[in-house]
Amino acid sequence: MSEQFEPKIVGFFCNWCTSTAADMAGTSRMQYPANVRPIRVMCSGSVDPSYIIRAILSGADAVMIGGCHPGDCHYISGNYKARRRVAILKSIFDTLGLEPDRIFLDWISASESKKFVKTIAEYTEKVRNMGPNKIAQRWDI
């Protein structure tokens, strides 16, 4: 039997919510798949689409962005802007015939450590089923 595919997921998590939720999950000794590589950013709105593209092209199987729930952004509207940017990027991927599902945005507040664990588990499973990201293994792009 072949080994199970373990996807690499790059996570851009907002300092004020999802990163704190990850922290709380850790201090509460909750288990979640180790497939995600968290990067703390100050706001989901600070994630430029080119960071996502670079991750997808340089070896990540998926990129996850975690931000504050609508209305809760520490900087008032960063998460709404993140949502627009992700919508643009998903549209581009869709048009070009790449896989928009490898980009994932969700709202996880600082107190939602359970949701954090559940989301990571579900998304890891989904990416595992999608299989390796083929574009990351091409030398010519």
Partner: peptide, 20 residues
């Protein structure tokens, strides 16, 4: 990782990034 690296680099990052 990429089984070779195209030079000049960052072809996709540039074009898809510019699109975004």
């Amino acid at each position: 990782r990429k089984k070779g690296l195209r030079a000049p680099t960052d072809l996709g990052v540039f074009h898809i990034g510019r699109m975004s």
